[in-house]
């Protein structure tokens, strides 16, 4: 699906009626999968991720009129989804000993590092490292590293130049690498 024009999408949704419902469906179909991956990495549970996605889209539908266009629509949605996922994660951790056994990365071939950490442990550390990044760097890193999007696609989503995105990705990678190595040497 081609990226819909955000302004057009927003205007159609704010019109209300069947036009709004159709536009909202387009929004969900285009942004839904990208956001789903984001929340799944945080929650690492299919049902919880779907709950977070549902809450996210309810908030988008109810609060789109408040979107002030200071960032791209994707960034706004990303932020809502991120917060929803963290809220759900926090509730789950309070209610029970929440343990996710669904790693988000795996060792490629035989890595020397794999002797020290299993995929679950390195996944947790990686998420911790991403969480410490500034939002733009975190978004860029995830869209590039995990979702393997082209810089041109990320540029369209985040409204940032490709050059700036490359710099963001480089800095983010360095910070993450530094964090992971410090944890491994600890």
């Amino acid at each position: 699906m081609n990226k819909p024009e955000d302004d057009l999408l927003i205007n159609r949704i704010l019109q209300g009626g069947p036009v709004a419902e159709e536009a909202f469906s387009d929004l969900a179909v285009y942004y839904g999968p990208k956001i789903y991956q984001q929340v799944f990495r945080i929650l690492r549970d299919e049902n919880l991720a779907q709950d977070a996605i549902q809450n996210t889209f309810i908030k988008i539908w109810r609060n789109l009129h408040q979107f002030n266009k200071e960032c791209t629509l994707f960034s706004w949605i990303y932020r809502i989804a991120h917060n929803e996922a963290l809220t759900i994660l926090s509730k789950e951790k309070k209610q029970k000993d929440f343990v996710s056994n669904s790693p988000i990365v795996e060792w490629s071939g035989h890595s020397g590092f794999s002797d020290q950490l299993n995929t679950e442990e390195i996944s947790n550390l990686l998420l911790e490292a991403i969480d410490m990044l500034p939002e733009k760097q975190a978004q860029t890193f995830q869209l590039k590293y995990f979702d393997d999007l082209k810089y041109s696609e990320i540029s369209e989503l985040l409204g940032t130049s490709e050059g700036a995105l490359k710099a963001n990705f480089h800095i983010a990678s360095e910070k993450i690498k530094e964090f992971l190595l410090s944890q491994l040497n600890h």
């Binding site: 709004a20 419902e21 909202f24 469906s25 929004l27 969900a28 179909v29 839904g32 999968p33 789903y36 991956q37 799944f40 990495r41 299919e46 779907q50 996605i53 549902q54 889209f57 309810i58 539908w61 790693p103 988000i104 990365v105 795996e106 060792w107 490629s108 071939g109 890595s111 020397g112 590092f113 794999s114 390195i122 990686l126 590293y145 995990f146 393997d148």
Partner: peptide, 23 residues
Amino acid sequence: DLKAKKIAIPDEAFFKSLAARVT
């Protein structure tokens, strides 16, 4: 040395149905 694991993303019908429920 790390490779991102593929996430099983729900299909288009899931998001369409979700949008319909929300609206």
